[in-house]
Design a protein around this nucleic acid. Structure first.
Lengths: 125, 125
DNA sequence: AATAGTGTATTAGCTTTCTATTACACTATA
DNA sequence: TATAGTGTAATAGAAAGCTAATACACTATT
């Protein structure tokens, strides 16, 4: 997996797990791959996986059963809220950065639309 | 200054300088505060300031004159392009993250509008 | 009981970032 | 020419993150 070297890997792994849950690749109650397996798959050290899962456990997203494995929580309410939480986080960050540049909300929407149009054009290459 | 501990301080200082230029607080040719002064103002070490300015110099945004100080470039074309570059970077990041969550461009716009409305409501408290 | 598959914990060492400190080099000016 | 203000460089040490390696603990199965 390709990681951004400006932000801790364990943090990016957390985001990856969020993503897999949101995409439905990981469902409530489902068993995650073994940490040694994840370490191989993501090509990072077991301890780095551990740190990410440990924080996810603290959040209640992941339940660890010693000797058995790691499982996605069965708390469907928590999982439902996850997508909203993650998406909102991203828009919140963007909003604050734009505001710091004195860009108005209306302009933000326009910038986003323009960016989208631009991506569509480039797609046609 | 408050820094995000997930990303290097020198990197955040670069962003801060970009911001000050975009906002027009720093204009073409203008002298920056002395690095020792910046270090005090931002409450970081001189070397950390140095690293940020060194990278900005490499980009041509800042011109260093030994013994005199650091100055914003007079290359107005470069400065003009800066705002677009920084803003686009942010939307690009958002777009990619949303796409990873299988959120369509149309939905992105809607999410942004919703977030903006939400912020407006909260403002009224 | 032994074994394989899990998570947990610890230690050592590397790299990056940041700080602290000191010394040096160039520029302007009194 | 002395001095104050500037950037530059180098060293040492602390902290965070990551890796590697090893050992341990729990669970399920043979």
């Amino acid at each position: 997996m390709k990681f951004n070297d400006k932000v801790p890997i364990y943090y990016q792994i957390k985001q990856y797990v969020y993503q897999e849950i949101i995409l439905g690749h990981l469902k409530a109650g489902q068993k995650l791959p073994a940490i040694r397996q994840l370490a191989v798959t993501l090509t990072v050290n077991v301890n780095t996986i551990q740190r990410a899962l440990s924080e996810l456990t603290t959040e209640g997203i992941i339940i660890t059963q010693r000797g058995k494995g790691n499982f996605v929580t069965n708390d469907t309410q928590l999982l439902q809220a996850l997508k909203k939480r993650i998406v909102t986080e991203q828009f919140s960050e963007l909003y604050d950065k734009m505001l710091a540049l004195k860009i108005t909300p209306a302009e933000m929407v326009q910038y986003l639309k323009n960016y989208i149009d631009q991506r569509k054009e480039v797609q046609h290459d």
